[in-house]
Write a protein that binds this DNA or RNA. Structure first.
Lengths: 156, 156
DNA sequence: CCCATATCGTTCGTGTACGTACGATGACCC
DNA sequence: GGGTCATCGTACGTACACGAACGATATGGG
């Protein structure tokens, strides 16, 4: 394999100060993006249903806990803004996993709930949920796993 | 404010075992998604140019280190697959920040480089890069910041 | 030299993610 | 009870993210 372009040139040296050089690979935002990519990939192959995404899963889990929620409140509970939530809910409704009815007490709201099929599916997926987390955290030992979850909780 | 729908019902109790209950808010994938969202939001308001996204920034930083890179190799260096890279590069080229030429030694490849304008911009953004990371890690003390970066590096 | 295989970049489709703007509705206060 | 302000859901535009399929090109083995 020609690899002329593979390592043509080393990165330019950092500035001459004693300060730590700025490497994109060591920045928190970059690492979070990569870690999130990996976690999503593991979810996809481990959760046991290729048609369910992480956000759809967390939405369904929340709807399984609270039996009925407005779209906006569900969004706050799972950390999605209303525009994003709109698309997630639309797709779940199109597949018959989620149902909706107008809130009888507030005409602005739509109450969402899982259909019987949605309940059946989320209960099946919940069996694999722990395996997804276990696989994602596999490179770390027990203490490190707890540390990471703790530190991430603090910055969220 | 009516809050009938706000806390209608507590989440159902977990199963009766001693095992830790499965809470979506404690799962690594969920936390990574939320943390990444927050980091992106901080990037957007701190980097100093509302038109530059995190992925565009890391691509430009890499192109500033290596003077010329194929699109595919750049993607591997910044952790984006080729389909995603295609869009990022297209937008940077449309704005005149990146230029391309055919690789004289390999007709499959396109060599990318920063334009003078692109270099000017990335050097300005690099001044704010440390502030983005500092702000994102602000809830943690120094030791915790290093731990988090270390743990994330291990699972990426 | 030729063929199987791999890589490179593009395109298409689906799905987050969010800013902004909008109309409808509700809450609050004078 | 009427006006102001907030909230709810929707719509549109832009941007990542990736699987799958594709044509062009390169490589390595027989």
């Amino acid at each position: 394999m020609r690899n002329v372009a593979r390592k043509q040139q080393e990165p330019k040296a950092s500035s001459g100060t004693l300060a730590r050089p700025y490497r994109i690979e060591e920045q928190i935002g970059y690492l979070l993006r990569r870690a999130h990519q990996r976690a999503s990939a593991i979810f996809q192959v481990t959760i046991g249903d290729p048609n369910i995404t992480p956000t759809q899963y967390s939405s369904m889990v929340k709807l399984n806990e609270y039996r009925e929620l407005s779209q906006n409140l569900l969004g706050r509970l799972v950390g999605m803004d209303k525009a994003t939530m709109q698309g997630v809910v639309r797709r779940l409704k199109e597949r018959g996993l989620v149902d909706s009815r107008p809130d009888p007490g507030d005409a602005r709201r739509t109450l969402l709930s899982l259909t019987t099929e949605g309940q059946r599916i989320v209960n099946r997926l919940l069996l694999n949920g722990p395996a997804v987390s276990r696989e994602t955290l596999k490179p770390l030992n027990g203490a490190e796993q707890r540390q990471l979850l703790d530190l991430l909780s603090k910055i969220v």
